[in-house]
């Protein structure tokens, strides 16, 4: 029982990390959620991308790889190089 709980904890952690990674990849490549959704095969809605990025739904492995391919080798609109935190 303890092992199962521990395994579930590890999977949840990895799931959360994938969600964070997908969001950052998409932002860095300059795609909006709807643009990225249309590029995937099969295409997905903006709500699905949001669910993946917030960790509400598990990203299928093949979609994760497609996101890596689309965002890694192509780019959306030019991403603005704005400073994230406006502390200054």
């Amino acid at each position: 029982m303890k092992d199962q709980n521990h395994q579930a904890g590890i999977l949840k952690t990895l799931w959360k990390e994938l969600a964070v990674a997908v969001k950052l990849i998409r932002e860095d490549s300059g795609y909006s959620k709807s643009e990225l959704g249309k590029k995937l095969v099969p295409s997905v809605s903006e709500e699905t991308i949001s669910a993946w990025e917030e960790g509400h739904e598990l990203i299928p492995i093949y979609q994760l790889l497609l996101i890596c391919f689309v965002c890694g080798f192509t780019s959306g609109k030019e991403s603005q190089t704005t400073i994230k935190k406006s502390a200054y």
Partner: peptide, 9 residues
């Protein structure tokens, strides 16, 4: 933390 598109590639 930041995850760039080159890392995705």
């Amino acid at each position: 933390f930041s995850f760039s598109k080159q890392e995705a590639a």
